[in-house]
Structures are given as structure tokens and as C-alpha cells.
């Protein structure tokens, strides 16, 4: 059901944890639905300098979380926030149809972390 790439990220997820003193935090999902994700980012020169995730969820939820941290790291915020669920799924060599919502979660989580960062620097 899952691609080799999904399984590889599930087995060895990248960037698990929380960055110290995060500049932005994105929290999405809800435990009642079974998926819950928290992304923390460190921003420097308008780029994502560091990013980590914590996720409660199925294999796809963990793999998409791991993948988005890889896709986002080092990217300018303007590019990072454009990462779509399709980009994540493609980078994982595809996701089963009923698991696409997991990639939505990851994309939303990152956007929320970036929005959180922006709202903080405005103050």
C-alpha cells in the first residue's frame, strides 16, 4: 500500500523533536481524528534555518511530517509556504488516496508555523 519512500521515512523520520526557542509554532489536527502535528521552526534572513516535528498519527502522517521538514529546510519563507500537499505526496513517490489528508496536515502545519512567526515579528 505504501511506497518504499514512505516506509523509509516512517522507519527513519528526519528532524523529529522541537527546535530550541522556536520562532514559529504550527499545531494542527486533533487527537479525536487520530492525527496531531506540531511543527517548530527557526527563521534567519527570512529563510527556514531549522525545523522539527512531532506527530501522533499513522504511517503516512509520520512520513509526510518527515518529508515536509526535508522540503522546507533552507527555503525562503515565501517558497516554503507554497509547498502543497501534492508536492509532499510526489516527493514520497505517491500516497494512497485515503491518506492524502495526512499530507494536507503537514502542509497546513508548516503554513501555520510561518504565520505564527510573522505575527510575532509584527509585534
Amino acid at each position: 500500500m505504501y511506497s518504499e519512500k514512505v516506509m523509509e521515512h516512517f522507519r527513519n523520520p528526519r528532524n523529529v523533536g522541537e527546535v530550541k526557542k522556536p520562532d514559529g509554532i504550527g499545531e494542527v489536527g486533533n487527537p479525536v481524528c487520530g492525527d496531531m502535528m506540531r511543527i517548530t521552526i527557526k527563521v534567519k534572513d527570512d529563510k527556514i534555518k531549522d525545523i522539527k516535528f512531532k506527530t501522533l498519527g499513522c504511517g503516512a502522517a509520520i512520513a509526510t511530517s518527515s518529508m515536509i521538514t526535508e522540503l522546507a529546510i533552507g527555503k525562503p519563507l515565501k517558497e516554503a509556504e507554497k509547498i502543497s500537499r501534492q508536492d509532499i505526496a510526489d516527493a514520497l513517490d505517491g500516497l494512497p488516496a485515503q491518506k492524502m489528508h495526512c499530507s494536507v496536515l503537514a502542509a497546513d502545519g508548516l503554513r501555520e508555523a510561518i504565520a505564527d512567526y510573522r505575527s510575532k515579528i509584527k509585534k
Partner: peptide, 14 residues
């Protein structure tokens, strides 16, 4: 509680 069923199932399958 605190670990999701499918994630456990996949890990055990390995």
C-alpha cells in the same frame, strides 16, 4: 493511548 494503531501495526510488521 499515545501511539496510533496503524503506526504500531507497520512497526510490528517490520
Amino acid at each position: 493511548v499515545g501511539a496510533e494503531g496503524e503506526a504500531m501495526l507497520l512497526s510490528l510488521d517490520m
